[in-house]
Simulated scan of single mutants.
Amino acid sequence: MSRILVVGASGTVGSELSRLLAAQGETVVKATSRKPGAADQVQLDLVSRAGLKAAFDGIDRAFFLAPPGHADQEALLAPLIDEAKARGLKKVVLMTAMGANADENAPMRKAERRLEASGLAYNIIRPNWFMQNFNTFWLHGIQTAGQIFLPVGAAKGSFIDARDIALVAARLLTSEALANRDFDLTGPRALDHAEVAAILTRATGKTIVFTDITPEAMLQGLQGAGLPRDYAEFLVLILGYFKAGYAERTTDAVLQVTGQPPRTIEQYAQDYRASWV
């Protein structure tokens, strides 16, 4: 068994990944930017790099991601990758996002390239948009107005359940069979947001609709919610890519890595029904 550092352990993917690894008998060290509140936590501030070296003490393998709210993901991920290299970790799994490798100058792609050149055994996973966005980031509009407000028109996305992302990460962290490969992770089919709204309506019995808004309105809303302007602009930019059709592609990567098909949006809606009712 290994001692595995999970960065982002309190997040949507990281929390489920930590649970899966612990259930397999692995020793999980959960990185937190706050003062640790449990024996399995270690303080690590990716912005200031405080606690960086201590977080890697005794670590064999690691899962990295850049936390939301920061547009320059490379600045946060590079020190993690460099420390992993210095410690000679047996395996690193890096989560970026589908499409991150489309632009060699993008911060996420630079982080991917840094890991690829590190000499470490690695995997890179690039998930598409999370299904769980509908019960987190887009939840306010659904709860208060029964609407999903996004500037994406009728474009489709092959949304993926974060639980499947975590399952993929857990398999890759604990196996060498697929080392040094990257995987674009998607759900089983592509849907537009009106179709998603209809599925949520059927699951909840509450009328939920999709409303297309302008990028400017989205930017204003994100900033009004307290997001830094550069990160809000980054989100609007990638939503523009969604509208352009770049999120529609599907892959069989979840099945290939885990041996089981990805969850459907209907299953997600039933499992998270309490979020919207």
Rank of each mutant, 00 (worst) to 15 (best):
G187E: 03
G187K: 00
G187S: 08
P188Q: 08
P188G: 06
L191S: 12
L191E: 09
L191D: 09
D192P: 13
D192T: 07
H193T: 09
A194E: 15
E195F: 12
E195M: 05
E195D: 13
V196W: 10
A197H: 11
A197T: 12
A197N: 14
A197S: 12
A198I: 09
A198F: 04
A198W: 00
A198M: 00
I199G: 14
L200A: 08
L200D: 14
T201R: 10
R202S: 15
A203P: 06
A203T: 08
A203L: 05
T204G: 11
T204S: 15
T204W: 12
T204R: 05
G205M: 11
K206I: 00
K206M: 04
T207E: 14
T207K: 14
T207M: 10
T207W: 07
T207R: 14
I208F: 14
I208W: 14
I208E: 02
V209L: 10
V209H: 11
V209P: 00
T211H: 10
D212W: 03
D212C: 07
D212K: 02
T214G: 06
T214L: 06
T214P: 02
T214H: 07
P215K: 12
E216S: 10
A217L: 05
M218C: 09
M218W: 04
M218V: 03
Q220E: 15
Q220G: 13
Q220H: 06
Q220K: 05
G221S: 10
L222P: 00
Q223P: 00
Q223N: 01
Q223C: 03
Q223F: 01
G224W: 12
G224A: 04
G224P: 07
A225S: 13
A225C: 00
G226N: 08
G226T: 04
G226M: 06
L227Q: 11
L227W: 05
L227S: 01
L227M: 10
P228N: 02
P228A: 11
P228L: 07
D230I: 04
D230F: 11
D230Y: 11
Y231C: 07
Y231R: 01
Y231D: 02
A232D: 05
E233Y: 03
E233R: 14
F234Y: 14
F234Q: 12
L235E: 07
L235A: 05
V236P: 14
L237Q: 12
